[in-house]
């Protein structure tokens, strides 16, 4: 019974490095990220924009801008296969089938010139080779029903602009799960939505994740979102995971000064998302990182050592790791 498939994690990212080549230098957008994710588990990746959280996700499915970016090192083991070594065709067969992505802005994520049905049928045709019109219709309607779209039979004939933002995000979600993936990446799924709709979508995601026993990565800059549905949280700063812990652990005992700052900045549910920016100072330019901790300029507890040497990742509790001199000393 105890086969390796069951014991080995669904996804294991090891020492991932992704670089962006720009005129003014190479940006280490992802700089040695490692984490694991099991089936049925939800990992939240939290950070400010530019922290590398989205790039990490796009590196997993290898959809980065072709000309400017390069995965410089590491491994992305999905069900034991290193995705980084696959051919274009092989990775394409995994995208949308085994690993799906729910994108950020539902208003612009759907193609305006095709019906919902048309767009939802595509993954089924390409990945599962469903050809029969009836079968396609059944599957699409089923997926829409699963995400709580009322009267889905009618919606399939609609065009995106005929749906509300929340409905569209449900459609995007439905499209992501209709091929029964085992890993779902939700990249800021609620950022563009009204607060009330945010809650609905989060609920849908949670339900879907539980019903299908998915591994899920939720990328967000909003800790309150994480609090609602995640099992674990990875906090990213300047391309690295600075703290990684189970949800209760991180809210009860945040160890990294950046995490602590984020906690303070968590908005009340009805407050503006902009509150995150109240952490004093600006995120660093990832093209110009020195050898020390990049959070130093904004860190109230920074020491000389922090400036000179990047802190090692240390275990500070059960499944709780942190990269900070202050936390380890």
């Amino acid at each position: 019974m105890a086969s390796e498939a069951n014991t080995s994690p669904l996804l294991e990212v090891r020492d991932l490095h992704t670089h962006f080549v720009t005129r003014s230098g190479t940006a280490r957008a992802v700089d040695g990220v490692s984490f694991t994710l099991n089936r049925g588990q939800t990992l939240g990746i939290v950070g400010e924009s530019g922290s590398g959280k989205s790039v990490t996700c796009m590196s997993i499915v290898r959809l980065l801008p072709k000309t400017a970016s390069r995965i410089a090192g590491g491994q992305v083991l999905f069900k034991g296969r290193d995705l980084l070594t696959l051919s274009e065709d092989e990775i394409r067969a995994i995208r949308g089938a085994e690993i799906s992505v729910v994108t950020q802005d539902p208003m612009t994520s759907l193609n305006p010139v095709y019906t919902i049905g048309n767009q939802m049928e595509e993954p089924l045709r390409y990945h599962q080779h469903v050809r029969s019109g009836n079968q396609l219709h059944e599957r699409v309607v089923g997926a829409l029903r699963q995400v709580g779209i009322p009267v889905p039979e009618r919606r399939v004939r609609d065009y995106p602009h005929q749906l509300s933002g929340g409905q569209r995000q449900r459609v995007v979600t439905a499209m992501a799960i209709e091929c029964h993936p085992s890993l779902l990446i939700a990249d800021e799924p609620t950022t563009a939505l009204d607060v009330t709709v945010q809650l609905q979508i989060l609920r849908v995601l949670k339900e879907v994740q539980q019903n299908l026993d998915l591994g899920m990565i939720l990328v967000t800059h909003d800790l309150s979102v994480v609090a609602r549905i995640c099992d674990d949280v990875a906090v990213m700063y300047a391309g690295r995971i600075v703290e990684h812990a189970p949800i209760t652990e991180i809210f009860d005992r945040p160890r990294h000064p950046y995490t602590q700052a984020l906690m303070l900045a968590v908005p009340k549910l009805n407050a503006s998302r902009e509150r995150l920016n109240t952490i004093p100072g600006q995120p660093p330019d990832v093209r110009r990182l020195g050898s020390g901790c990049p959070f130093v300029p904004r860190c109230p507890k920074a020491t000389e050592r922090c400036r000179e040497e990047y802190p090692p990742t240390t275990t500070v509790g059960e499944s709780h790791t942190v990269a900070c001199w202050e936390a380890t000393s």
């Binding site: 067969a93 995994i94 949308g96 992505v101 994108t103 612009t108």
Partner: peptide, 17 residues
């Protein structure tokens, strides 16, 4: 550059499509 083209790629569609 649009999101829907990105999504189409995320869906695993062939580049020609």
């Amino acid at each position: 550059e649009t999101d829907y083209v990105r999504l189409a790629r995320l869906k695993g569609l062939p580049e020609s499509r």
